[in-house]
Computed example of a mutant assay.
Amino acid sequence: MADYPFSPALRLLRWTVHGTFSILLVVALAGVARQGQIPQVLGGILLGVFYAAGIVIEGRLPHFGGPTHLRLGRAWLVLITVGWAVLALAAPQFVWLAFPLFFAYLHLLPLAVALPGVAVLTVAAIMAAAWHEGQLTTAQVIGPTIGAVVATLMATVYKVLDAESEERRLLIDDLVRTRGKLVEAESDAVRLAERERLAREIHDTLAQGMSSIILLLRAARRDLVEDPATAERRIVEAEDAAKENLEEARNFVRALAPPALQQSSLVAALRRISDSAVAGTSVQARFEVSGTPVPLPAVYDATLLRIAQGALGNVSRHSGAGRAGVTLTYLDDVVMLDVYDDGRGFDPSETAGFGLRTMRERARALGGSLTVESAPGEGTAVVATLALPLWEAP
């Protein structure tokens, strides 16, 4: 079956025209057959066969609806018109075949050519009927004229509907393409977000853990000869840190909460990492809680823990501090995490490393904020503030 490039309404019109032509041709053949006009019968059959052959051939042509198909269709219409004219002069029964030809003209020809063609065809039908009757009557004029007007109006309406249908189809195609692009862009955004998330997790956990292990092993090497007991303790601490790092890596795959929070509270986890993050360095860390602790959603616990890990990692690696402190403060409507040190400090307006950007993004993801107060030679304070969920507020 041909894949017609026309709307359903226009296809219905086409097959209605073909059906009307077939019915009128059968009626005409029956009329001339009753009168024993064999040549006219044979001519009518030949016209019908040629008409049907054109319909069959057009459905098998490649590039249906293209320029070649249109040229062949117009040539077919000319031959059908000539055949109709011969039969209309031979027998009056064939005159009414002009009606479906009106539609064919309006469908296959440009409007500027189709309308004069329909007018000529109408006049030819009127003159053929008058020639057979031997006189021109009002009925002979009104019949073909009304048929031409009706055919013109119907074809025009159907063309307008077809144009609107094509416009809607193009709009739907554009919408489908746009939706596909949006889906692709959304997929890219999801992949980038996941990549960013993994980068943050690795920076705040594995990277910090590996730094702690390196510092502990370096301290153990220094104490290996003069203080073997201390060196042994450092090695044990490094082994524990390596185990925790391994568990962090496994949690990336399982997308679980941080190991430090799986079997303990946020307060206990922060107390533990405050000691382990600076182990093997000369930094003395202190952890404090202010206010009354309240339960927080797991994502809040994880975010505050990751921010503390990132900030303490910066203290141990970059600050050169002697003392550091971590304070978790519970107020009526917010929870605050302060990580401060008395190290060398820096200019926050000129230094914006990946770690600080990651901590700020973590806070913003929960509607919070992160501020950094520092100056060269004056230490550093990192303050994360998260609004307590309404259902958690005391």
Rank of each mutant, 00 (worst) to 15 (best):
D3L: 02
F6H: 13
S7T: 13
L12H: 13
W15L: 07
T16R: 13
S22R: 01
S22M: 07
L24K: 06
A28M: 09
G31T: 11
Q35A: 15
I38D: 01
V41W: 04
V41H: 05
I45D: 00
I45R: 00
L46N: 01
L46K: 08
L46V: 03
V49L: 02
V49S: 00
Y51I: 00
A53T: 00
A53S: 00
I57M: 06
P62D: 02
F64T: 05
F64G: 01
L70K: 15
R71V: 03
G73T: 02
V82G: 12
V86W: 06
L87V: 13
P110R: 10
L111Q: 13
V113Q: 12
T122I: 08
I126T: 05
A130H: 02
H132L: 10
E133K: 11
Q135R: 10
V141D: 00
V149N: 02
L153I: 13
Y158D: 09
K159P: 02
L161E: 07
L161Q: 11
D162V: 00
E164Q: 15
E166W: 12
L170S: 07
I172H: 04
L175Q: 11
R177F: 08
L182W: 11
V183D: 14
V183L: 14
A185N: 12
S187H: 15
A189L: 15
V190F: 09
V190R: 15
R191P: 05
L192N: 07
A193N: 15
A193F: 09
E194H: 09
E196Q: 03
L198Y: 11
L198T: 10
A199P: 07
I202T: 04
I202S: 03
T205F: 03
S212K: 04
I214R: 07
L215Y: 02
L224P: 00
E226P: 00
T230R: 11
E237S: 10
K243W: 14
A249N: 06
F252E: 11
V253D: 01
A260W: 06
S264P: 04
V267Q: 07
A268T: 07
A268K: 15
A269F: 05
A269H: 01
L270I: 05
A279P: 05
A285Y: 09
A285E: 10
F287G: 09
V289C: 10
T292K: 14
P295C: 11
A302R: 04
Q309L: 02
V315E: 03
Y330C: 01
V334M: 07
V334Y: 14
V334Q: 08
V339A: 06
V339K: 05
V339P: 13
Y340S: 10
D341F: 02
D341G: 09
G343D: 11
D347A: 09
A352N: 08
E361L: 03
R362A: 06
R362I: 01
G368Q: 05
G377I: 04
G377C: 15
E378D: 11
T380K: 14
V383Q: 04
V383N: 12
